[in-house]
Design a protein around this nucleic acid. Structure first.
Lengths: 408, 408
DNA sequence: AAACTTTTCCCACTTACTGGTCGAAGTCGC
DNA sequence: GCGACTTCGACCAGTAAGTGGGAAAAGTTT
């Protein structure tokens, strides 16, 4: 363990680090090819990175007919932590520098208990995982929480159903406690980052991630970057009004999208269908277990229960109608569906696709894949570590998008 | 007139040129302060720009208590042309390097006559304006046409009601004819650029421009850049379905937003109200002139005609309901309303604001101005020249956003 | 006219990076 | 086993970009 300043000094070092993160150990020659720099320059920067303890030697590669390359890789002890706080659960992972998960843990929480309680639980989980993986120090922590987040300030802003979280300095608390850089974002955004990094949207710079969970939200990628909007509330589509009348939403309004279809709405409708005897399958399950969740509904659909299937189709149609409008507006290259309700599988996906393709312009949908999340529950933590590693593996964190774009 | 290579050689020259464009003549000292470069470097680059014929001396400034500055400005003979093709009209302007309009001309066309006819008319107008302003050569041409455009390829793609335009190489034709760089974009996008450059959205990097004209469309700005979407169809909100039933749209579908409210829809409804005797004001106008347009409707509203006012309010509500959904999704910093229907004035704006504020989340609307276009008919041509001047005043046009962003 | 202010020109110096050369370290053919 | 060939990495001189100090230039103020 070096005690050197573990800091990226320039743009070239940042590029090299991200190459090593994304492509694994590479030789100096391969790195020279990948970045447009001379071998001398690459060698110099690698020496500096090695001295800074960010990079290390990785032995010899097999010869390709000449002198064998000596491989270079990210420092073996580099560790990132990701924290994905949901409404009722928390997911924590520790990865190495290449963002391979070394250990992961899930726990039940109630986000309404406030930031102190939740952060205490999260910290404990991180500490446990550190012990488990023999992690001495963390290079960075990424975290996501439900509801609108001020990314630049690192805290939640007026979260609807999360008392005590408003302006609570989550990012700075994490940064202090673990003595490393930290970033906080909306949970849907980090899931979108996850799918972009290692999931269905790999290489698709402009896409929408739609989370159908307890609530409904979207993560928006524009040219490889999260679009957060001016107040950090972009993607907040759960409370779009889809009807004048309809069920009352948790937010107090009437006709919100997530009052028609979401984890909460589906549970409500499922229990009703069971109690009213419209779905024998769900009635049996309810009697058996005393409650119903998304998996019960999915099972009922698989078993061919017509009422349940109709329920899913109607919900999918509501979501699809909103997405169709957003597709016309935004013209994304892909839509990724995630969150708990993605367990509803093919029935839901078919309805979504049908509605979106039927209601949007042909030009905007002719190349528009609508697919399920590839990462499932891990999308959030993976996105969180990707987000913080992008940050750590960048030159001057102060020099951000806005400034760089101006140059072009 | 120099015959030197009039070409920007590096990023610093690009920055200097844009400074001179946006802030007018400046002294070397002021330029040094504005860019973060040493005075020596600024002097060297200015010399090169002068040699390239892009920049020239502009005499002495008044002394501020010491040696007076010698001012530098863009070459006096720099000229940009902007072409804004609408469904029924065409607008052309020639500006100097600082994007001040030197001459402007408007003409009536029918875009359905095809690109050959329209481009011939446009070229003639540009030639007329060149003669009028004594312009020897153009430094660049920006143009906008209705419907989806492939920006990178420089032509329209599957435009709904524009036979013959599909894949017709508009950009390259202009570039060849006038022997200068040219860019082609969607007409709504260039209007948005215009409002960003010199209109209501000055300094607001993330906003929506909504054109309510013959059709309905939106221009989307994200962090100071136009968002065109993966197929160039972003902002195509006119055919969003707002109802299961309703008037048949020109696109063949039912319930499209612009079938409910647009220039075409309003004319239709106005004539109907006149013929059915519901609006005495419009009936009189129709009898008097044989036809009705937006200005007649505006006059009727000003005169207090209750049926017309209700008509505008209902239309505004339809637009507002769609915008409210998009605001929740996109979280812009401003909405600018333009196009012919903005002549409807306060009645329309009030209804839009009311609907948007009522139906979107408080967080996304608490800082959301909804304002009328400041540039009116000139937004398009001004945006077009701004677009092409950004292009000409940039280093390597090949090195574009995607690449630059990757560095950060 | 002297003192002061501000700008511009000039030049030595640093920094970032390039690209060629050469030895090191392997494989391959015989 | 040895020389020819290939590939890699270290070294180093050279270059382009940019910095920053100093002096001259060209005004104003006293």
């Amino acid at each position: 363990m070096t005690t050197a300043v573990r800091k990226v000094q320039n743009r070239n070092q940042a590029r090299l680090l991200r190459l090593l993160r994304d492509r694994g150990p590479l030789s100096r020659a391969e790195l020279t090819d990948a970045v447009t720099l001379s071998k001398s320059k690459v060698a110099v920067e690698l020496d500096r990175l090695t001295a800074a303890g960010l990079v290390q030697d990785a032995g010899q590669a097999a010869s390709r007919g000449g002198r064998p390359s000596s491989l270079v890789r990210l420092w073996d002890g580099l560790r990132f932590a990701g924290i994905d706080v949901g409404a009722t659960s928390i997911n924590v992972a520790i990865t190495d520098g290449g963002l391979t998960t070394l250990a992961q843990r899930q726990g039940d929480i109630d986000v309404s208990q406030g930031p102190e309680v939740v952060l205490r639980a999260a910290s404990q989980m991180v500490r446990d995982l550190r012990a488990e993986t023999g992690t001495e120090s963390l290079a960075g922590i990424g975290a996501g929480v439900p509801g609108p987040v001020s990314f630049s300030e690192g805290f939640s802003v007026v979260p609807p159903i999360m008392p005590g979280w408003d302006k609570y300095p989550v990012r700075d608390r994490l940064s202090e406690e673990f003595d490393c850089p930290a970033l906080l974002d909306n949970d849907v955004n980090i899931m979108a980052v996850g799918e972009f990094h290692a999931g269905a949207a790999r290489g698709i710079g402009t896409f929408m991630f739609v989370k159908l969970g307890t609530g409904v939200g979207a993560g928006i990628f524009v040219d490889g970057h999260v679009h957060r909007g001016v107040d950090g509330s972009a993607g907040d589509i759960g409370h779009i009004q889809v009807h004048d009348q309809g069920p009352v939403c948790a937010c107090g309004n009437i006709g919100c999208l997530e009052a028609f279809f979401s984890g909460a709405a589906l549970r409500r409708d499922a229990v009703l269908a069971a109690q009213e005897g419209r779905s024998p399958f769900l009635a049996a399950r309810l009697a058996e277990r005393g409650a119903l969740d998304v998996l019960d509904v999915a099972d009922a659909a698989t078993a061919g229960d017509p009422v349940v299937i109709a329920m899913i189709r109607e919900g999918g149609r509501h979501i699809g109608e909103v997405l169709a409008k957003l597709v016309s507006f935004f013209n994304p290259g892909m839509i990724v569906i995630g969150g708990g309700l993605s367990n509803l599988g093919g029935t839901l996906l078919a309805e979504l696709r049908g509605t979106i393709y039927r209601r949007s312009l042909p030009l905007a949908t002719r190349n528009l894949p609508v697919v399920m999340s590839e990462l499932g529950d891990s999308a959030g933590v993976l996105g969180a570590v990707r987000m913080i590693s992008d940050h750590v593996f960048s030159h001057d964190p102060a020099l951000r998008m806005a400034d760089v774009r101006e140059l072009a």
